Amino acid sequence: MSIGKNIKRLREQHNLTQEQLANIIGVSDKAVSTWESELKTPRMGTIQKIADHFGILKSDIIEDKKDNVTSISSSAPHGIDSIKMPLLGSISAGVPLEMIEVQDLVNVPREVGETYPDAFLLEVIGDSMNKVIPEGALALLDPTIEISNGDIAAVAVNGYDATLKRVFKHQDGVTLEPLSYNPEHKTQFYSDKDMDHCPVSIKGKLVWYMAPLDIKF
């Protein structure tokens, strides 16, 4: 059973409308509808709010439940030390690519997921950060952590393109620095004037990464 179906079953068991559940957790009823229709997946922080309200574990919403979402299966040891987090799309570590939403959930160590409940995963494409993170890795990015100079972050350029770079903020602009063995990748500087017509915004700080199961060595 998916997260959306678990949320719907839980809501119906407590005789709540989508609007009532939305008011409880501080979102719109449209958001609840998109979750239950499996068009989108709620963030881990939102799932935690739902779990806290109903007095259940977050895993009761995330993991498949054959019977009742409020019960914990004792017969499925798989995943007990992991937690599912959303894989939202791809991110370029070379030439920026448009972020495309991917409807998927990936198991990460439970400690990581619980440390960064609002984070999301993006696939790294390109080799401009391969001194730090290899192409094909899944980068975990937390949008709630403030970025300091020298941090690696997902950066949206011109509103919709995303790139993974080391970020340095200046009084007159921002520098995006690659960390690559490929000399073709160059440091990019965007002045305040540049950003008037080509805005640069931070989407999330890199906090962890993992190799996907199908990676080739």
Rank of each mutant, 00 (worst) to 15 (best):
M1I: 04
I3K: 05
K5I: 11
Q13V: 04
N15W: 10
L16T: 05
Q18R: 08
I24F: 08
G26S: 05
T34C: 13
M44A: 10
I47F: 12
I47Y: 11
Q48F: 09
D52T: 05
K58R: 09
I61T: 05
D67W: 12
S74T: 10
A76K: 09
I80H: 09
S82E: 10
P86A: 09
L87D: 11
G94A: 06
L97I: 14
L97H: 04
D104F: 01
V108I: 14
P109Y: 00
R110E: 09
V112S: 01
G113I: 01
E114G: 07
T115I: 13
P117L: 03
D118T: 15
L121E: 12
E123W: 00
I125M: 14
I125W: 13
I125Q: 13
I125G: 07
M129I: 07
D142Q: 08
D142H: 02
I147R: 10
S148A: 11
I152D: 00
V155R: 07
G159C: 02
Y160I: 12
K165E: 05
K165N: 08
H170R: 15
E177Y: 08
P178H: 05
P178Q: 09
L179M: 11
Q188V: 03
Q188I: 01
Q188L: 09
D192H: 01
M195F: 02
D196K: 10
H197Y: 12
P199C: 02
S201C: 02
K203P: 02
K205D: 04
W208C: 14
P212V: 06
K216P: 00
